[in-house]
């Protein structure tokens, strides 16, 4: 008998962490935080273990849509610097595996959320996965420069799902939390597109910066930031808002609008000269902006439980 030598190269075989990377852990952390905020500020209390399970499966559902996105977008991820090292374009995980993980976790997360909490929350999660994987990834992303405006809805659903876990329904408060993230997404991503300029054009993704130019993008950032402010402030007038939220929101929106005006006034030469310092700062601040809005909501509701800080 002779030994047979296989010449298959296994040096690029996936580790467990590669399958975790398919779920986009950084996006999941935002999903966890906003879903938790939605659940926390809701007027109905939920058993801590049920709350934990619900948040976990909302996060897994978000992760599943991330895996489906990586399956579909492997071709453009390969040519963008920011995404070239992802498990599928780097060859560690096959596109088929990403699809299988995405589909299996989608079904599991929706069913488990339905069983743990209620079917309204599960239905919203199913719609979120569908919206991100099909409406945004397959349809809008490659066909319109408004891709992230409409696609932003997918990222805006988690607080609404968290609210539905507790209350079993949808209300003004949860819709306004949705609108807050929905209106915040365009300025956040367009600021990113301004300083990651080669990536999107190389990949042929019709980002606003590519199709309408950078000057128009700067104007769009300002317009959306101005439209965002009244929506963010409106939450203060609802049952989950209060003086603390109003004060925080006024300061954050003033700073955000100030940043957007500076971006709008700048020309490309100035931006190139300081390596997009202002745009990068605006992008980082946008994350702080959203984080502090939800923190203010949660602290406000916690204080209100002690009879402090209500209208």
């Amino acid at each position: 008998m002779t030994d047979t030598t296989t010449l298959i190269d296994h040096s690029n075989e996936a580790e467990f962490g590669d399958y975790i990377a398919l779920l986009k852990p950084r996006v999941m952390s935002l999903v966890v935080f906003t879903a938790l905020a939605g659940l926390f500020v809701a007027p109905v209390s939920v058993h801590p273990f049920v709350a934990f399970t619900a948040i976990l499966f909302i996060a897994i559902g978000g992760g599943a849509s991330g895996a489906l996105n990586m399956w579909w977008d492997a071709d453009i991820d390969a040519v963008m610097r920011r995404t070239a090292k992802r498990p599928v374009p780097s060859g560690r995980v096959t596109a088929g595996e990403a699809l299988a993980v995405g589909l299996a976790l989608s079904v599991l997360s929706v069913l488990m959320l339905g069983l743990a909490a209620n079917w309204v929350a599960a239905g919203l999660l199913a719609f979120t996965i569908f919206f991100y994987a099909v409406v945004y990834t397959m349809w809008l992303k490659r066909s319109t420069p408004q891709n992230i405006v409409i696609g932003g809805a997918a990222g805006a659903f988690p607080p609404m799902i968290g609210w539905a876990v507790a209350t079993g329904g949808v209300s003004v408060e949860s819709v306004l939390m949705f609108v807050l993230i929905f209106m915040w997404t365009p300025p956040h991503f367009w600021a990113l597109a301004l300083f990651m300029k080669d990536d999107y054009s190389n990949a042929g993704v019709p980002m606003l910066t590519v199709t309408h130019g950078r000057k128009t993008t700067r104007a769009h950032i300002l317009v959306y930031t101005l439209l965002l402010a009244p929506m963010a402030l409106a939450l203060a007038a609802t049952s989950i808002g209060g003086p603390l939220y109003l004060a925080v929101s006024v300061v954050l929106n003033a700073l955000f609008i100030k940043g957007a005006i500076i971006i709008w006034r700048r020309d490309e030469d100035a931006a190139v000269a300081d390596e997009y310092k202002v745009e990068k700062k605006f992008f980082r601040f946008s994350l702080v902006y959203l984080f502090l809005h939800f923190v203010a909501l949660m602290v406000g509701v916690a204080l209100a439980n002690f009879g402090v800080g209500t209208w």
């Binding site: 996936a14 580790e15 467990f16 399958y19 273990f49 049920v50 399970t53 976990l56 069983l115 743990a116």
Partner: peptide, 20 residues
């Protein structure tokens, strides 16, 4: 490592369903 990871996930899932 991959098998241990999957094993851990499955055990965690069983515990989660039990707790629920």
């Amino acid at each position: 490592g991959r098998n241990m990871g999957l094993g851990g996930v499955l055990i965690a899932f069983v515990l989660l369903v039990f707790g629920l």
